[in-house]
Amino acid sequence: MGEETTPLLTVDNLTIEIAGANVVDGVSFTVARGEVLALVGESGCGKSLTSYAMLGLLPPAARRIAGRILLEGTDLAAMSERQLRKARGKDISIIFQEPSASLDPLTTVGSQIASAFRQHHAVSGTEAFARARDMLVAVGIPDADHRLHQYPFELSGGMCQRIMIAIALICGPRVLVADEPTTALDVTIQAQILDLMKQLVATSGTSIVFITHDMGVVADIADHVAVMYAGRIAEIAPVRDLFARPAHPYTALLLASVPRLDITPKANLATIEGSVPFPNEFGYGCRFASRCPLATDRCRAEQPPLFEQGGGHRSACWHINRVHELKENAA
């Protein structure tokens, strides 16, 4: 996690267009080996598109118009579909929000895990099944021999997500993209899955890009956090730094709106007025300006770059020195 080491994954100036609007606009971040980067933001902020772009799995309507995705120096974005197929599942994997829907309902989970292994390794079916069994044990599924022969509908959502993790990790990828993997699960299961992921990162050294809108989950699992707003990175920081000293109004308001048990609320829970602008209303300036209490004319006219705050903490705001006012108001 040192600043000096070359990052494992570098996303550089990723820009994705849908119907003429840049719904992901110049997104850049790096992930070190064994690190968990959380990509946080509201629905429609472009975090899922960013994650699909990393595997070359953008929906047909979306088009990557700029940017590089470097995995240890190899640009995934420059690869042909054929090369990408060799990388998917082997070098970079993804797990999704709806684990039960991500499995083929008519095939046993064992053969789905085994086929993920055989996709990238020339081994016999028996051998692949043995690997699948080991993987079930690794993701903490009891009674693996029995479970291998079960169908997805016989398993709970939490179990299915463990199966998805087993599929994603069986080829030992260097990066795991997790697209809201716990959103569809109830809270206790969510905690178990997060623990499992932390444990797997620690043992395998796989880096994780963890997409979520849940600040609680961020605090639990992330090393670094990138906060996205309307397709751009608003702020990126080590997790403790971000929670302690948010340097972007959006982050500050987002943190203020998280319900807390240790404070008796004086008033209603804080909310952020308004809603995320539609891509056709983005304009030239800061995309948060229409909802920002600190916004000035400059914010509406000119897009702020990411200002370095020291220690890898960067924020795209013209009024970083006034952000603390928001925090004091909210408290």
């Binding site: 998917r88 599942g89 499995l103 994603a168």
Partner: peptide, 11 residues
Amino acid sequence: DYVRAGRARGL
């Protein structure tokens, strides 16, 4: 979703 998941495994 399982179609996207299948492609994500390299199919």
